[in-house]
Structures are given as structure tokens and as C-alpha cells.
């Protein structure tokens, strides 16, 4: 009896000891697993952080690449356009001049002096558009090489416009267009004179090109922080779908003028670039058949 109590007791003690050992080991095992999980969690966090970072830098690189590609496409299209201008449009004034010269040599007899005046007018007009095209091309190429930096000076806006009107006088007269200028007397502005002249020349030339029997008006408006030039014509106007594309940083195929004047699309493209390089803006409102209102602003900050 006594022996059996001792055996049973001994077995109980041994069982309790085994359970204790097993519990202690389980606790330690959990501790170990917890530690290892923590290590894994830290590694995972570091990995996710790393992946996120590389994702971001990848996205940045991708964005930059996409932007570069887009810029490259635009630049390529612009270059193609330039080549087609060089190949075709630059040739046209000379072809025209040759045609006029041939006409002159055939028809010019002493009594026919009236026809002489007419021919000289044509020569002037063709030469003018030729010079304009070459000027625009030069300015544009100059801009491409990144040298387009405005050099602001003070000048009289009215005087600048009158000079341009003299240039276009006979061409406008041939198309029965009156050139008008509305400006505050003696209004001096400060801007890059050459750039402003190129912008205005292109806008006035366009006004005349797309108008027959009408008017081209140049206005200067003084605002708080900027000067705004307006070039308003009473011509054929612009279709809405063309209007949308006009100032979208690319060359837009030019429509033929009312007297079949050719255009390259380079003029407006340049006008926009020259405006923006002076921190200005350019915009247009127009409806087909109701003329166009082009405007550009030049800030007074210079």
C-alpha cells in the first residue's frame, strides 16, 4: 500500500516535471518564432520601402522619358515642316518673280506704262513675302539654338506700327484693305523691339492675307501690369477646329490667303515663342466670316 502511494506520487511528480519542461520549451519556442517573425517583418518592411522607392524613381525616369519622347516628336515634326518649307515655299517667290519678269519682257512696250506700275507692285509684294519668310526662318533657327533672349529697350509702339504699315502699304492697297492704328499718343513701351516687331509683322501680314476689301486694325491697350497689342481684321475668320490647334506648340499647315498668298505656318509659331520668351501670352478669338482678333500681352516688369 505504502509502496503504491510512493510509486503513484513519483509518477505524478515526474509527469508534472515533464509538463513543466514542455511548457517552458513551448514558451521559448514562441519567443524564438516571435523574434524571427520580427526579423522577417523588418526585412519585409525594408524591402517594401525599397520597392516603393525604386518604383518612384522608375516612374520619374519614365515620365522624363515620355516627356523627352514627346518633345522629340514635336521637334522632328517641326524639322520636317522646315524641310518642306525650304524645299517648296522658299522657291515659290523666285518662281513668281521669274514669271513676272517674263511677263514684263514680253508685254513691256513704251505706251504700256500703266502695266509697268502693276508689275512693280507685284514684284514688291512677292519680294516682301519672300523676305518675310527668310526673316521668320532666321529668327526661328536662332531660337532653336537657344539664343533667343529678349533684350528690352524703350521704344514708341506707334512708330513701330507705322514702319510695318509702310512695308505692307502697297499689298494692302492692292487688296483694298485699310490699315489703321489706334494708340495712346506717344505711348512708349519697354520690350525687345525686334521680337515685338516680328510678332506684329506676322499678325498684320496674316490679317492682310485673310482679308479682302476690309480693314486691319492695330490697337495698344495699357493694363495694370502689362501691355496688350491687338491685331483685328474683318477677313474670312478661322474655323473652330483650326482655332484649337493654332497655339499648340507645333507648326500648323497654313491656309491659302484670299489672294492665293501662300503661307508656311511659321509666323504664328514664331509669334507664340517670341511672346513667351518675354513672359507674355498670345491668344485669338475668331468666327468664320466674322474676322479674327489676335492679341498678345507683354508684361511691364522689364
Amino acid at each position: 500500500m505504502k509502496e503504491s502511494i510512493l510509486t503513484t506520487g513519483g509518477r505524478h511528480v515526474s509527469e508534472v516535471r515533464d509538463i513543466n519542461r514542455s511548457l517552458a520549451e513551448k514558451a521559448l519556442n514562441m519567443r524564438c518564432q516571435a523574434y524571427l517573425s520580427q526579423v522577417k517583418a523588418n526585412l519585409l518592411t525594408a524591402t517594401i520601402y525599397g520597392i516603393n522607392n525604386s518604383k518612384k524613381s522608375l516612374q520619374r525616369e519614365l515620365d522624363q522619358k515620355t516627356r523627352l519622347e514627346r518633345e522629340l516628336k514635336v521637334a522632328n515634326a517641326t524639322k520636317d515642316r522646315l524641310l518642306s518649307i525650304l524645299a517648296h515655299d522658299l522657291r515659290s517667290p523666285f518662281t513668281n518673280l521669274i514669271g513676272i519678269a517674263e511677263g514684263l519682257s514680253k508685254n513691256l512696250q513704251p505706251p504700256n506704262l500703266e502695266s509697268l506700275g502693276e508689275h512693280i507692285g507685284m514684284v514688291h509684294s512677292v519680294a516682301l513675302s519672300g523676305v518675310e519668310l527668310v526673316d521668320n526662318l532666321l529668327t526661328w533657327i536662332w531660337g532653336l539654338s537657344g539664343q533667343i533672349k529678349p533684350q528690352p529697350v524703350r521704344f514708341e509702339a506707334n512708330k513701330l506700327v507705322q514702319e510695318l504699315f509702310m512695308l505692307f502699304e502697297s499689298h494692302a492697297k492692292n487688296k483694298s484693305i485699310s490699315l489703321k492704328c489706334e494708340m495712346p499718343a506717344g505711348s512708349e513701351i519697354q520690350a525687345d523691339r525686334h521680337m515685338t516687331q516680328t510678332i506684329l509683322r506676322n499678325l498684320i501680314s496674316n490679317g492682310i492675307k485673310y482679308t479682302a476689301n476690309g480693314e486691319v486694325l492695330v490697337k495698344l491697350e495699357e493694363r495694370n501690369r502689362e501691355w496688350v497689342f491687338w491685331v483685328i481684321d474683318t477677313g474670312v475668320g478661322i474655323a473652330p477646329e483650326v482655332l484649337d490647334r493654332l497655339f499648340k506648340n507645333q507648326l500648323v499647315e497654313s491656309a491659302t490667303g484670299t489672294a492665293k498668298e501662300y503661307g508656311t505656318g511659321l509666323g504664328l509659331f514664331l509669334a507664340k515663342e517670341l511672346c513667351e520668351s518675354q513672359s507674355g501670352k498670345i491668344w485669338v478669338t475668331s468666327k468664320p466670316g466674322q474676322g479674327s482678333q489676335f492679341a498678345f500681352s507683354l508684361p511691364k516688369v522689364y
Binding site: R21, A24, E25, K26, L28, N29, C32, L36
Partner: peptide, 13 residues
């Protein structure tokens, strides 16, 4: 080793 951890440390304790 890792698999020995719980046994070894239980004995240490």
C-alpha cells in the same frame, strides 16, 4: 542552432 534554441535555453533557465 535555431531548432535547438528552446531546449538549450530551457536548460539554461
Amino acid at each position: 542552432s535555431i531548432p535547438h534554441f528552446s531546449v538549450v535555453m530551457r536548460k539554461v533557465i
